[in-house]
Nucleic acid binder design. Structure first.
Lengths: 254, 254
DNA sequence: CGGAGATATTGATCGAGGTCAAAAAACTTC
DNA sequence: GAAGTTTTTTGACCTCGATCAATATCTCCG
């Protein structure tokens, strides 16, 4: 995390008070008065406990949700009964973007631990972004970012080995924790092996085996739900897939 | 497709002339004058030939693209050289949505056959949607739909067998052709087995084998790139994954 | 604290699908 | 239409990770 980012994150923290709206405020920067207008429509939810549903698939869509603290999983159900995890949502991340299109949630969301949530009435958010071009732009970016992320995930699921998937998953968590000011090398997994496996298209046993293998190889220290990344470079080296855009950023001459 | 939608689709066809902007005009229906304003910013591209690039990963993003006729694939490159197909785009479908967030394309796009494209300057589209709330709404829906679609794809790649993936792929094509007024049971695959395999996370040999198996089972007739679906119900039965939302729509009592 | 239920680890086995290889069919180009 | 290239099909084999099973560890609660 660069010095600059720390500063702007702090600024936003003040501007957005204790509510994690930085996804919407950052990084184009709304004017302070626009941030206030955004805040005016935010509802606060009572905290969710582990296992509580935030919403269920099929329910009408009225609000976007932003995770303040804690963690949430989103999932659908396969018709053979068990659940398919489609995403994990950490502080500052937005839920419900898939539901805009047809006015009902396409997946369910459930708290993985004690979790605080902000609620944004979508109609009012739309009205607001009609009047605040930079907010509209930010909304487009937010949705687009989700699409990019999903494309990366599809590439990962489409062609990678189990090792690559687990490494990539850990790196993704690391990145996201870092971005929110938590430790990038030392964090808790609030989701079970089962849930990680479901998300990565692997059996829970495979996830467990890879965790122990990474530990044996001195890449990680895993103690149940607590992960400590020891050699992040070896972890990065496992992830072979690299988008052209990433390559281009790393070496613009090619 | 409900009666109401059919009607509005026809209206749009007229309103949008020969240019496939229905993705943006549909289904909330812009007022005719707004459709005109939208048309005013559309650029027409010269036709692409098979193999021509529409854009490349890393290039600056200025336009959204809509396929008028033909077909396009989007792909990234893995660092072991070969390409990873992330999507196929048929007439009426929009490309470039993943590039809004950081102003550069995250994947490359290449024509699979002779293809006509419309070009929408994104900045002007943003200006326009600030002024036309229903267009803004439509843009949000468009982006959201992409996210839903990606989530479905992730679920497919995460847990399904090869059989399920290929069946699902064919059904998806069938749906999309149907929606655009082409035959739902009789169509050309403009992409190679290689490209299908890459997209579905399978080896090209596996795709080929499944095509012949489906043909032996009298579910399809496949002749090189021409597919004819004979028993679409057996194909549907293979796709076990069903989102809660779908289940809810099918049987709202549960 | 102790017992019950959930969650994680580890081992053994097996099969779906990947990989390699070769032939066949289709498309290209002169 | 012949020669060369690309794409597809089909076969044989093998590997990675799923599945089944047993044990260990954690967590929750009385």
């Amino acid at each position: 995390m660069t010095e600059r980012n720390v500063i702007s994150l702090d600024k936003i923290k003040v501007a957005c008070r204790d509510c994690s709206l930085s996804a919407l405020c950052l990084p184009m920067g709304l004017r302070p008065e626009d941030v206030d207008r955004l805040h005016a429509i935010v509802k606060r939810n009572r905290p969710l406990q582990r296992g509580d549903n935030l919403f269920r698939a099929g329910e009408p869509f009225r609000h976007l949700f932003v995770v303040k603290t804690g963690a949430v999983k989103t999932f659908t159900q396969t018709n053979d009964g068990d659940e398919q995890v489609v995403g994990f949502h950490l502080p500052g991340e937005v839920l419900g973007l898939d539901a805009i299109q047809d006015g009902q949630h396409g997946c369910s969301a459930r708290a993985l631990e004690t979790t605080a949530i902000c609620e944004l009435p979508f109609e009012r958010l739309e009205d607001l972004s009609s009047n605040i071009p930079s907010l509209q732009h930010q909304m487009f970016r937010l949705l687009s970012k989700e699409i990019s992320h999903d494309a990366e995930m599809m590439a990962l699921l489409g062609r990678s080995t189990a090792e690559e998937r687990v490494a990539s998953f850990l790196l993704s968590l690391s990145e996201r924790f870092k971005r929110r000011g938590f430790s990038a090398t030392d964090f808790f997994l609030s989701m079970s092996r089962q849930e990680i496996g479901s998300y990565l298209g692997l059996a829970l046993e495979t996830v467990s085996r890879l965790f122990t293998r990474f530990q044996d190889d001195k890449i990680l220290k895993v103690e149940r739900k607590h992960v400590q990344i020891i050699d992040i470079d070896r972890l990065r080296a496992m992830v072979t897939h690299q988008t052209d855009a990433e390559r281009h950023r790393a070496n613009p001459s090619t």
